[in-house]
Amino acid sequence: MEHAKTVGNFIVGRRTFEGMRGSGGGGPFADVDIVVVSKSVKNIPGIKIVESPQEALNYLHEKGHQTALIAGGADLHNAFIGQGVVDELIFNVAPVLEGKGLNLLLNTEHYQYKDVELLDFKSLGSGVVQLHYTISH
């Protein structure tokens, strides 16, 4: 929420948005431009729906935003990363072990490798650590 308020927007996938809305989300984001990327949903009152990462970026650029925040699952992140439009990554690492985590891929057809540089890290409390990286292009 802090990052979304700072940049004034965020791009989210349909499933993440529905989970956010289901838990009473949206209220704290009243002054934030929300863009949902979905090929199946066509209309959510008060929310911009687009079908592709580029449409989302174009919309936010037209609204005057120079930075976009992506919040969602691996599919959404991989769509943006695959287009080479991601400059920074922020991970919140929680003290939980699970069978499947967020799997970010640069390219699913060819092996690719990109260096990342740690910009910042901080404790968010309850054992959660936030890591902030920049991606080499």
Results as ranks from 00 to 15, higher is better:
residue 63 K to D: 10
residue 76 L to T: 04
residue 77 H to F: 13
residue 100 K to N: 10
residue 54 Q to W: 07
residue 64 G to T: 02
residue 108 T to E: 13
residue 94 A to M: 12
residue 107 N to Q: 06
residue 54 Q to C: 08
residue 58 N to C: 10
residue 67 T to D: 14
residue 56 A to D: 04
residue 107 N to E: 06
residue 67 T to V: 14
residue 73 G to Y: 00
residue 97 L to W: 01
residue 115 D to E: 15
residue 98 E to G: 14
residue 55 E to Q: 07
residue 104 L to N: 01
residue 110 H to K: 03
residue 60 L to S: 02
residue 114 K to T: 04
residue 62 E to Q: 09
residue 77 H to M: 13
residue 94 A to I: 13
residue 98 E to S: 13
residue 102 L to C: 02
residue 82 G to Q: 09
residue 76 L to R: 09
residue 74 A to S: 07
residue 75 D to R: 13
residue 104 L to F: 00
residue 106 L to F: 00
residue 102 L to K: 09
residue 97 L to N: 03
residue 65 H to K: 01
residue 91 F to E: 00
residue 117 E to S: 14
residue 84 G to Q: 07
residue 63 K to C: 06
residue 91 F to Y: 03
residue 59 Y to K: 12
residue 77 H to K: 11
residue 74 A to M: 00
residue 70 I to W: 06
residue 109 E to D: 13
residue 100 K to T: 12
residue 103 N to M: 11
residue 117 E to L: 08
residue 88 E to Q: 09
residue 92 N to S: 15
residue 76 L to G: 03
residue 92 N to E: 13
residue 75 D to A: 15
residue 85 V to D: 06
residue 84 G to D: 07
residue 82 G to A: 12
residue 66 Q to N: 12
residue 85 V to F: 07
residue 60 L to P: 02
residue 68 A to S: 09
residue 73 G to P: 02
residue 102 L to R: 04
residue 87 D to Q: 01
residue 90 I to T: 15
residue 111 Y to G: 06
residue 78 N to I: 10
residue 62 E to C: 05
residue 96 V to N: 03
residue 107 N to D: 12
residue 99 G to K: 05
residue 55 E to G: 02
residue 111 Y to C: 09
residue 105 L to M: 06
residue 98 E to T: 13
residue 61 H to V: 12
residue 108 T to I: 10
residue 72 G to P: 01
residue 90 I to K: 13
residue 68 A to N: 03
